[in-house]
């Protein structure tokens, strides 16, 4: 685990050395901030506060920005020649994969953490009596939503990491990741239009949205959803490790 930690720390630091990290954080905060502002305006004094409104959209954003975070992880190293260095270090391939994944997940968590400011605003205007404009914030769904979006983000990053290990071209890696995540996201709708019930159930069972929007986002933490996301992460990391090892045999 020592090597995993070292690789993860470097990857996390690397995000803050490149402009893309700040651009992604800026874009996410701008979009979610705009959404929060309009939601707050509509609800204040009229409707109960909903801390999960921003997080529902954050899931959809993740489909697009998770690949931006992961696309460089292996593709850039392969292109720059540093992958050869990493693979001749006394480090297991699995440690490199896990370290990079955890570094990316840590960065994702930091960005996700920035959205806590919206919850603080809700709490400040609903809990402090002097300024109370709405009923108190129901904190349960907020906590489950954060857990869900965090796991969802991890799964999306793991998918992105896999595609980064497939190609040396970052753009191709990013595009393939977005396409795959988008299909997995829309699996929920595909399940609705397919006539065959069994196939529809299978497609829906693989949908990212079905495991997030209809459970975590409404305050329900289902064991199967947790297993789905963790399982997806494990499978993706396993395949990525095998892909990396296959470079040695090519």
């Amino acid at each position: 685990m020592r090597n995993v930690r070292i690789v993860a720390q470097r990857e996390l630091a690397q995000y803050f050395l490149s402009p893309i990290a700040y651009m992604v954080a800026f874009a996410i905060l701008l979009l979610t901030g705009f959404l929060f502002n309009s939601d707050l305006g509509q609800r204040a004094g009229r409707l109960p506060p909903d801390g999960t409104a921003v997080l529902g959209v954050f899931g959809f954003f993740t489909v697009f920005f998770a690949p931006l975070i992961t696309m460089r992880l292996f593709a850039e190293e392969a292109r720059e020649g540093t992958l050869e260095l990493m693979l001749t270090m006394p480090v297991r391939d699995g440690d490199v994969v896990l370290g990079k994944f955890l570094g990316a997940w840590a960065y994702y968590s930091i960005i996700l953490g920035l959205t806590l400011v919206y919850q603080v605003i809700w709490l400040s205007i609903t809990t402090f009596k002097a300024y109370q404009l709405s009923p108190e914030l129901d904190i349960g769904p907020v906590i489950s939503s954060y857990l869900g979006i965090w796991l969802f983000g991890g799964a999306a990053l793991a998918v992105g990491l896999l595609f980064s290990a497939i190609t040396e071209n970052q753009v191709v890696a990013g595009f393939l990741s977005i396409a795959t995540l988008f299909i997995l996201w829309l699996g929920d709708f595909a399940g609705l239009v397919v006539q065959n019930r069994v196939i529809a159930q299978v497609i829906r069972a693989l949908s990212l949205q079905a495991h997030y929007s209809t459970s975590f986002l409404i305050g329900v933490i289902r064991f199967e959803d947790v297993v789905f996301f963790i399982g997806l992460i494990v499978v993706m990391l396993f395949i990525t490790t095998r892909l990396l090892e296959s470079r040695r045999w090519r």
């Binding site: 470097r10 690397q14 050395l17 490149s18 020649g81 540093t82 050869e84 260095l85």
Partner: peptide
């Protein structure tokens, strides 16, 4: 190809 992380 000298393996360097150019941002470091």
């Amino acid at each position: 190809t000298v393996p360097l992380y150019r941002d470091m």
